[in-house]
């Protein structure tokens, strides 16, 4: 473990703004990789989810805009 990095981490979190996923038993590198994986899963989920939503409601939204005065 990098002492300097942990000191910095403590300083930042001490200001009450750090909310990275904390798995104390996991190595720092694995925690960082988990954060990247989580963002990746979120992004793909949002892409697919909003894609399905777009397919379902986009035509009616466009119709509503076209027919509004």
């Amino acid at each position: 473990m990098n002492v300097e990095t942990n000191d910095f981490h403590t300083t930042i979190c001490g200001r009450g703004v750090c909310r990275m996923i904390e798995f104390a038993v996991l190595p720092t590198a694995l925690q960082a990789a988990l954060v990247v994986m989580l963002v990746l899963v979120e992004a793909i989920g949002l892409y697919v989810g909003y894609g399905l939503l777009e397919e379902r409601i986009a035509p009616s939204v466009l119709d509503a805009i076209a027919n509004s005065s």
Binding site: C18, R19, M20, A32
Partner: peptide
């Protein structure tokens, strides 16, 4: 990806934001 991993090593990513 590289930046998030690199800054993630220092625990400074606010996942809620």
């Amino acid at each position: 990806a590289v930046g998030a991993f690199s800054y993630g090593l220092s625990g400074v990513i606010d996942i809620g934001v």
